[in-house]
């Protein structure tokens, strides 16, 4: 055996292998880069021109974006029951606690309900937290965005045990279902990408997965459905460039819309009774009047009335 010669051959072979692996790895990392989006389409003046010709006014330049993104795997986050109850329930006071047994045939665990004074706290299926204050709202108009945010921040910090890790303020606006309240939304983040969600009482998705409704009398309700991101999953898939996303969104925007922001992130439907699920990247287009989410893979509008989760099996064995 000519060992010196064999070693030389092995060195060459492993050198080539390392070059190949390094190239693949750099491609991989570039695709899911979390900052300094640097895709092929972002910021092209031609694309901007195209959407301006469609009557869209851009208040910010089109962001750069990666050419492809993978799915993101998440789990429903479990609320920290102890710290939540310690912060929420009255010190020394009594809270009536009831526990609904749930619907055994569907395998849905029950809810815990706490009541004290005009306040109620629901912890549903160990996934969703809902706080409600039934005192009178105090009339109109809705509090200003700044005031509502300040109250919401303070309430979450002092009464809800603080924001979950990775959550941050997103936007505040007059609530879609009650014009005398201001809705303050918080989203989550994963490796720099925002994760938005649809909150149960919003007809169209605005943001989430935390929503605080603030009335003149103070915080009227909080709904929180926190997600636990697991990580990216699957191969990166080509996504729409931002201009294409705006063009897709035009069908749901008013004529000649003013686009205030265009962001890339992930969107989670509200699922029931799941272990884990994958969520797709979305483009979020905000105008003064609307928030529209566009699936970055196929250009479909996201979160508008389509219920994907089924608790009751509807398969061939179902009734």
């Amino acid at each position: 055996m000519d060992w010196p010669r064999a070693k030389s051959l092995l060195i060459l072979t492993f050198f080539a292998l390392n070059v190949f692996l390094g190239y693949q790895l750099s491609l991989e990392r570039r695709t899911v880069a979390t900052s300094g989006w640097a895709g092929a389409a972002g910021g092209r003046s031609g694309a901007e021109q195209e959407i301006r010709e469609a009557g869209v006014r851009l208040e910010a330049p089109l962001p750069a974006a990666p050419a492809a993104l993978p799915l993101l795997k998440v789990q429903p986050g479990k609320p920290n029951r102890e710290s939540l109850l310690a912060a929420m329930l009255p010190q020394g006071g009594a809270a009536a606690h009831t526990s609904t047994p749930g619907i055994e045939s569907l395998g849905v665990p029950g809810s815990d309900v706490y009541e004290w004074g005009t306040e109620q706290l629901f912890i549903m299926s160990d996934v969703l937290v809902f706080y409600l204050n039934t005192r009178p709202d105090g009339g109109c108009p809705a509090p200003s965005a700044d005031d509502a945010r300040r109250q919401a921040d303070e309430f979450l910090a002092t009464r809800m045990g603080g924001l979950p890790p990775g959550a941050a303020f997103d936007l505040a606006r007059v609530d879609g279902s009650d014009p005398c309240r201001t809705a303050v939304y918080y989203h989550q983040q994963f490796r720099g990408y925002p994760i938005w969600g649809k909150m149960g009482d919003d007809a169209e998705p605005v943001s989430g997965p935390i929503k605080v409704e603030v009335a003149q009398a103070g915080v009227a309700s909080v709904i929180e459905q926190y997600l636990k991101p697991i990580g990216f999953t699957g191969a990166p898939v080509a996504i729409l460039d931002p201009a294409a996303a705006v063009m897709k969104a035009l069908a749901w925007l008013p004529k000649e819309p003013v686009v205030q922001s265009l962001e890339l992130g992930y969107f989670s439907e509200s699922y029931c009774m799941v272990e884990s699920y994958e969520i797709a990247p979305v483009w979020r287009i905000r105008t003064p009047d609307a928030v529209v989410y566009i699936n970055a893979y196929n250009g479909d509008r996201v979160g508008s009335g389509h219920q994907e989760c089924q608790t009751v099996p509807s398969g061939a064995g179902g009734s």
């Binding site: 799915l71 395998g107 272990e275 884990s276 797709a280 893979y297 196929n298 389509h306 994907e308």
Partner: peptide, 17 residues
């Protein structure tokens, strides 16, 4: 772009939205 949803109890949902 098909996403997978693992239900509690063993069911699986695939969806493209």
């Amino acid at each position: 772009a098909v996403r997978r949803i693992d239900e509690k109890g063993g069911g699986v949902i695939f969806t493209d939205g």
